[in-house]
Design a protein around this nucleic acid. Sequence first.
DNA 1: CATGGTGTACCATATAAACTAGTACACGTA
DNA 2: TACGTGTACTAGTTTATATGGTACACCATG
Lengths: 132, 132
Amino acid sequence: MWPRIDPRSDIPIYQQIIQQIKEAVAKGLIAPGEKLPSVRELAGRIAINPNTIAKAYQELEREGVIETLRGRGTFAAALSSGVGDEMKRRSIEGFMEKILVEAHYLQLGKEELLTMLQSMVEEWYKKKGESP
Amino acid sequence: MWPRIDPRSDIPIYQQIIQQIKEAVAKGLIAPGEKLPSVRELAGRIAINPNTIAKAYQELEREGVIETLRGRGTFAAALSSGVGDEMKRRSIEGFMEKILVEAHYLQLGKEELLTMLQSMVEEWYKKKGESP
DNA sequence: CATGGTGTACCATATAAACTAGTACACGTA
DNA sequence: TACGTGTACTAGTTTATATGGTACACCATG
Protein backbone atom coordinates (compact mmCIF):
# COMPACT_ATOMS: atom_id res chain seq x y z
CA MET A 1 0.00 0.00 0.00
CA TRP A 2 -0.25 2.29 -1.80
CA PRO A 3 -2.98 4.80 -1.43
CA ARG A 4 -1.77 7.67 -3.56
CA ILE A 5 -2.89 10.77 -1.76
CA ASP A 6 -3.25 14.18 -3.27
CA PRO A 7 -3.01 16.66 -0.40
CA ARG A 8 -4.03 19.49 -2.67
CA SER A 9 -7.28 17.83 -3.67
CA ASP A 10 -10.50 19.28 -2.31
CA ILE A 11 -11.48 15.75 -1.36
CA PRO A 12 -10.58 14.99 2.26
CA ILE A 13 -7.59 12.69 2.69
CA TYR A 14 -9.53 10.15 4.73
CA GLN A 15 -12.10 9.89 1.95
CA GLN A 16 -9.40 9.34 -0.62
CA ILE A 17 -8.11 6.47 1.50
CA ILE A 18 -11.58 5.01 1.88
CA GLN A 19 -12.24 5.17 -1.84
CA GLN A 20 -8.93 3.61 -2.80
CA ILE A 21 -9.16 0.76 -0.32
CA LYS A 22 -12.71 -0.02 -1.41
CA GLU A 23 -11.50 -0.04 -4.98
CA ALA A 24 -8.58 -2.31 -4.20
CA VAL A 25 -10.85 -4.81 -2.50
CA ALA A 26 -13.39 -4.65 -5.30
CA LYS A 27 -10.69 -5.21 -7.89
CA GLY A 28 -9.38 -8.21 -5.97
CA LEU A 29 -6.04 -6.57 -5.25
CA ILE A 30 -6.76 -7.25 -1.62
CA ALA A 31 -8.15 -10.68 -0.80
CA PRO A 32 -10.79 -11.21 1.91
CA GLY A 33 -9.04 -11.85 5.20
CA GLU A 34 -5.83 -10.24 4.03
CA LYS A 35 -4.14 -7.99 6.52
CA LEU A 36 -3.98 -4.27 5.90
CA PRO A 37 -1.15 -2.02 7.04
CA SER A 38 -1.45 -0.88 10.63
CA VAL A 39 -2.63 2.61 11.37
CA ARG A 40 0.84 3.74 12.35
CA GLU A 41 2.64 2.02 9.49
CA LEU A 42 0.36 3.41 6.81
CA ALA A 43 0.49 6.83 8.41
CA GLY A 44 4.27 6.75 8.33
CA ARG A 45 4.39 5.50 4.78
CA ILE A 46 2.27 8.23 3.27
CA ALA A 47 3.38 10.84 5.78
CA ILE A 48 0.11 11.88 7.32
CA ASN A 49 -1.33 11.77 10.81
CA PRO A 50 -2.29 8.36 12.27
CA ASN A 51 -5.59 9.81 13.39
CA THR A 52 -6.56 10.40 9.79
CA ILE A 53 -5.87 6.76 8.95
CA ALA A 54 -7.84 5.67 12.00
CA LYS A 55 -10.78 7.75 10.84
CA ALA A 56 -10.70 6.10 7.42
CA TYR A 57 -10.46 2.62 8.93
CA GLN A 58 -13.37 3.28 11.27
CA GLU A 59 -15.56 4.40 8.41
CA LEU A 60 -14.53 1.38 6.36
CA GLU A 61 -15.47 -0.92 9.21
CA ARG A 62 -18.81 0.83 9.57
CA GLU A 63 -19.45 0.05 5.92
CA GLY A 64 -18.45 -3.55 6.40
CA VAL A 65 -15.46 -3.38 4.08
CA ILE A 66 -12.87 -4.31 6.69
CA GLU A 67 -12.79 -5.90 10.13
CA THR A 68 -10.67 -4.77 13.03
CA LEU A 69 -9.41 -7.05 15.78
CA ARG A 70 -8.05 -5.30 18.81
CA GLY A 71 -4.39 -5.95 19.26
CA ARG A 72 -4.15 -7.87 15.99
CA GLY A 73 -4.83 -5.49 13.18
CA THR A 74 -7.28 -4.74 10.41
CA PHE A 75 -8.28 -7.20 7.73
CA ALA A 76 -10.33 -7.14 4.58
CA ALA A 77 -13.78 -8.48 5.38
CA ALA A 78 -15.54 -11.30 3.65
CA LEU A 79 -18.49 -10.17 1.57
CA SER A 80 -21.20 -9.28 4.03
CA SER A 81 -24.11 -9.61 1.63
CA GLY A 82 -27.40 -8.33 2.83
CA VAL A 83 -27.48 -5.33 5.09
CA GLY A 84 -27.41 -1.99 3.38
CA ASP A 85 -28.01 -3.34 -0.10
CA GLU A 86 -30.86 -0.97 -0.70
CA MET A 87 -28.64 1.95 0.23
CA LYS A 88 -25.99 0.78 -2.20
CA ARG A 89 -28.55 0.43 -4.96
CA ARG A 90 -29.55 4.02 -4.39
CA SER A 91 -25.90 4.94 -4.50
CA ILE A 92 -25.60 3.38 -7.94
CA GLU A 93 -28.63 5.31 -9.10
CA GLY A 94 -27.10 8.52 -7.81
CA PHE A 95 -23.86 8.04 -9.68
CA MET A 96 -25.74 6.99 -12.76
CA GLU A 97 -27.72 10.21 -12.78
CA LYS A 98 -24.48 12.17 -12.77
CA ILE A 99 -23.22 10.11 -15.67
CA LEU A 100 -26.38 10.86 -17.61
CA VAL A 101 -25.98 14.58 -17.00
CA GLU A 102 -22.39 14.50 -18.23
CA ALA A 103 -23.47 12.47 -21.22
CA HIS A 104 -25.89 15.21 -22.16
CA TYR A 105 -23.14 17.80 -22.37
CA LEU A 106 -21.00 15.35 -24.30
CA GLN A 107 -23.96 15.10 -26.66
CA LEU A 108 -23.82 11.36 -26.40
CA GLY A 109 -26.75 9.52 -27.88
CA LYS A 110 -28.42 6.70 -26.04
CA GLU A 111 -26.76 3.95 -28.04
CA GLU A 112 -23.43 5.71 -27.91
CA LEU A 113 -23.60 5.97 -24.14
CA LEU A 114 -24.68 2.38 -23.71
CA THR A 115 -21.77 1.20 -25.83
CA MET A 116 -19.37 3.27 -23.76
CA LEU A 117 -20.71 1.95 -20.46
CA GLN A 118 -20.67 -1.60 -21.72
CA SER A 119 -17.03 -1.40 -22.72
CA MET A 120 -16.12 -0.01 -19.30
CA VAL A 121 -17.95 -2.84 -17.60
CA GLU A 122 -16.29 -5.44 -19.81
CA GLU A 123 -12.89 -3.92 -19.11
CA TRP A 124 -13.51 -3.99 -15.39
CA TYR A 125 -14.58 -7.61 -15.21
CA LYS A 126 -11.72 -8.59 -17.45
CA LYS A 127 -9.14 -7.09 -15.11
CA LYS A 128 -11.02 -8.51 -12.16
CA GLY A 129 -10.95 -11.97 -13.60
CA GLU A 130 -7.19 -11.87 -13.77
CA SER A 131 -6.22 -10.94 -10.22
CA PRO A 132 -8.35 -12.96 -7.80
CA MET B 1 -36.87 27.70 -9.58
CA TRP B 2 -36.68 25.36 -7.96
CA PRO B 3 -33.38 24.26 -6.48
CA ARG B 4 -34.40 22.38 -3.40
CA ILE B 5 -31.64 22.98 -0.89
CA ASP B 6 -30.92 20.84 2.11
CA PRO B 7 -29.02 23.06 4.54
CA ARG B 8 -28.26 20.07 6.74
CA SER B 9 -26.57 18.15 3.98
CA ASP B 10 -22.82 17.76 4.10
CA ILE B 11 -22.73 18.85 0.47
CA PRO B 12 -22.06 22.60 0.15
CA ILE B 13 -25.08 24.65 -0.85
CA TYR B 14 -23.38 26.11 -3.91
CA GLN B 15 -22.60 22.61 -5.14
CA GLN B 16 -26.20 21.53 -4.64
CA ILE B 17 -27.26 24.46 -6.81
CA ILE B 18 -24.69 23.59 -9.47
CA GLN B 19 -25.78 19.99 -9.59
CA GLN B 20 -29.48 20.78 -9.81
CA ILE B 21 -29.13 23.38 -12.53
CA LYS B 22 -26.93 21.10 -14.59
CA GLU B 23 -29.55 18.40 -14.16
CA ALA B 24 -32.38 20.70 -15.14
CA VAL B 25 -30.60 21.72 -18.32
CA ALA B 26 -29.70 18.14 -19.15
CA LYS B 27 -33.28 17.04 -18.66
CA GLY B 28 -34.52 19.81 -20.91
CA LEU B 29 -36.39 21.57 -18.13
CA ILE B 30 -34.36 24.65 -19.02
CA ALA B 31 -34.00 25.42 -22.71
CA PRO B 32 -30.79 26.84 -24.19
CA GLY B 33 -30.92 30.63 -24.09
CA GLU B 34 -33.57 30.64 -21.40
CA LYS B 35 -33.07 33.17 -18.67
CA LEU B 36 -32.22 32.03 -15.17
CA PRO B 37 -33.31 33.85 -12.01
CA SER B 38 -31.02 36.69 -11.03
CA VAL B 39 -28.56 36.23 -8.23
CA ARG B 40 -30.60 38.38 -5.88
CA GLU B 41 -33.95 36.88 -6.84
CA LEU B 42 -32.84 33.30 -6.42
CA ALA B 43 -31.10 34.16 -3.17
CA GLY B 44 -34.29 35.68 -1.86
CA ARG B 45 -36.43 32.79 -3.02
CA ILE B 46 -34.48 30.04 -1.29
CA ALA B 47 -33.40 32.27 1.57
CA ILE B 48 -29.65 32.12 1.31
CA ASN B 49 -26.93 34.66 0.72
CA PRO B 50 -26.56 36.17 -2.79
CA ASN B 51 -22.82 35.53 -2.65
CA THR B 52 -23.47 31.81 -2.49
CA ILE B 53 -25.62 31.99 -5.61
CA ALA B 54 -22.97 34.05 -7.35
CA LYS B 55 -20.37 31.42 -6.55
CA ALA B 56 -22.52 28.72 -8.07
CA TYR B 57 -23.20 30.78 -11.19
CA GLN B 58 -19.52 31.52 -11.66
CA GLU B 59 -18.64 27.86 -11.48
CA LEU B 60 -21.43 27.00 -13.91
CA GLU B 61 -20.13 29.56 -16.37
CA ARG B 62 -16.62 28.18 -16.01
CA GLU B 63 -18.00 24.80 -17.01
CA GLY B 64 -19.84 26.30 -19.96
CA VAL B 65 -23.30 25.43 -18.69
CA ILE B 66 -24.54 28.99 -18.55
CA GLU B 67 -23.58 32.37 -19.98
CA THR B 68 -23.62 35.65 -18.14
CA LEU B 69 -24.15 39.02 -19.75
CA ARG B 70 -23.29 41.98 -17.60
CA GLY B 71 -26.30 44.04 -16.84
CA ARG B 72 -28.64 41.60 -18.53
CA GLY B 73 -28.58 38.38 -16.60
CA THR B 74 -27.60 34.74 -16.83
CA PHE B 75 -28.84 32.38 -19.48
CA ALA B 76 -28.57 28.70 -20.22
CA ALA B 77 -25.82 28.22 -22.78
CA ALA B 78 -26.14 26.53 -26.10
CA LEU B 79 -24.32 23.22 -26.25
CA SER B 80 -20.68 24.16 -26.58
CA SER B 81 -19.48 20.89 -28.04
CA GLY B 82 -15.75 20.54 -28.22
CA VAL B 83 -13.67 22.07 -25.49
CA GLY B 84 -13.44 20.06 -22.32
CA ASP B 85 -14.94 16.95 -23.82
CA GLU B 86 -11.99 14.87 -22.80
CA MET B 87 -12.39 16.09 -19.24
CA LYS B 88 -16.04 15.11 -19.26
CA ARG B 89 -15.21 11.71 -20.61
CA ARG B 90 -12.83 11.21 -17.70
CA SER B 91 -15.60 12.36 -15.42
CA ILE B 92 -17.86 9.63 -16.73
CA GLU B 93 -15.11 7.09 -16.20
CA GLY B 94 -14.68 8.30 -12.64
CA PHE B 95 -18.34 7.89 -11.78
CA MET B 96 -18.42 4.55 -13.55
CA GLU B 97 -15.58 3.26 -11.43
CA LYS B 98 -17.52 4.10 -8.31
CA ILE B 99 -20.53 2.28 -9.69
CA LEU B 100 -18.40 -0.77 -10.36
CA VAL B 101 -17.05 -0.72 -6.81
CA GLU B 102 -20.57 -0.54 -5.40
CA ALA B 103 -21.65 -3.31 -7.71
CA HIS B 104 -18.94 -5.53 -6.29
CA TYR B 105 -20.27 -5.17 -2.77
CA LEU B 106 -23.78 -5.73 -4.07
CA GLN B 107 -22.40 -8.91 -5.61
CA LEU B 108 -23.90 -7.95 -8.91
CA GLY B 109 -22.82 -10.07 -11.83
CA LYS B 110 -21.73 -8.50 -15.06
CA GLU B 111 -24.96 -9.21 -16.89
CA GLU B 112 -27.02 -8.19 -13.90
CA LEU B 113 -25.25 -4.84 -13.71
CA LEU B 114 -25.53 -4.21 -17.43
CA THR B 115 -29.25 -4.85 -17.30
CA MET B 116 -29.60 -2.44 -14.42
CA LEU B 117 -27.64 0.30 -16.16
CA GLN B 118 -29.52 -0.19 -19.39
CA SER B 119 -32.88 0.23 -17.72
CA MET B 120 -31.71 3.44 -16.05
CA VAL B 121 -30.52 4.82 -19.37
CA GLU B 122 -33.78 3.89 -21.07
CA GLU B 123 -35.75 5.55 -18.29
CA TRP B 124 -33.70 8.73 -18.62
CA TYR B 125 -34.06 9.11 -22.33
CA LYS B 126 -37.74 8.33 -22.08
CA LYS B 127 -38.34 11.19 -19.68
CA LYS B 128 -36.06 13.41 -21.70
CA GLY B 129 -37.97 12.74 -24.87
CA GLU B 130 -41.14 14.04 -23.26
CA SER B 131 -40.10 17.48 -22.06
CA PRO B 132 -38.04 19.18 -24.78
C1' DC C 1 -29.71 61.75 -19.13
C1' DA C 2 -31.68 59.31 -15.05
C1' DT C 3 -33.21 55.12 -13.04
C1' DG C 4 -33.29 50.48 -11.89
C1' DG C 5 -31.70 45.81 -12.48
C1' DT C 6 -27.89 43.03 -13.55
C1' DG C 7 -23.23 40.49 -12.44
C1' DT C 8 -19.07 41.24 -10.01
C1' DA C 9 -15.62 42.54 -6.52
C1' DC C 10 -14.41 43.56 -2.26
C1' DC C 11 -13.97 43.14 3.10
C1' DA C 12 -14.94 41.23 7.53
C1' DT C 13 -16.83 37.76 10.30
C1' DA C 14 -18.77 33.24 11.96
C1' DT C 15 -19.01 28.45 11.76
C1' DA C 16 -17.92 23.77 10.81
C1' DA C 17 -15.01 20.32 8.97
C1' DA C 18 -10.57 18.49 8.36
C1' DC C 19 -6.12 17.83 9.86
C1' DT C 20 -2.29 17.81 13.02
C1' DA C 21 0.01 16.85 17.51
C1' DG C 22 0.62 14.47 21.59
C1' DT C 23 -0.62 11.33 25.20
C1' DA C 24 -2.78 7.47 27.20
C1' DC C 25 -5.27 3.09 27.58
C1' DA C 26 -6.95 -1.85 26.64
C1' DC C 27 -6.14 -5.85 24.28
C1' DG C 28 -3.69 -9.72 22.03
C1' DT C 29 0.62 -12.00 20.74
C1' DA C 30 5.21 -13.36 21.46
C1' DT D 1 7.20 -8.81 30.37
C1' DA D 2 7.68 -6.47 26.06
C1' DC D 3 5.77 -5.16 21.86
C1' DG D 4 2.38 -3.99 18.39
C1' DT D 5 -2.24 -3.34 17.70
C1' DG D 6 -6.77 -0.28 17.56
C1' DT D 7 -8.99 3.19 20.20
C1' DA D 8 -9.96 7.41 22.94
C1' DC D 9 -9.15 11.86 24.40
C1' DT D 10 -7.71 16.80 24.51
C1' DA D 11 -5.97 20.79 22.29
C1' DG D 12 -4.81 23.50 18.51
C1' DT D 13 -4.39 25.02 13.51
C1' DT D 14 -5.96 25.35 8.97
C1' DT D 15 -9.25 25.49 5.37
C1' DA D 16 -13.74 25.72 3.25
C1' DT D 17 -18.20 27.33 3.57
C1' DA D 18 -21.52 30.69 4.36
C1' DT D 19 -23.15 35.14 5.87
C1' DG D 20 -23.56 40.33 5.95
C1' DG D 21 -22.68 44.51 4.00
C1' DT D 22 -21.00 47.83 0.67
C1' DA D 23 -19.59 49.41 -3.72
C1' DC D 24 -18.80 49.47 -8.70
C1' DA D 25 -19.40 48.75 -13.91
C1' DC D 26 -22.48 47.56 -17.26
C1' DC D 27 -26.93 47.43 -19.85
C1' DA D 28 -31.78 48.41 -20.96
C1' DT D 29 -35.51 51.30 -20.36
C1' DG D 30 -38.11 55.53 -19.72
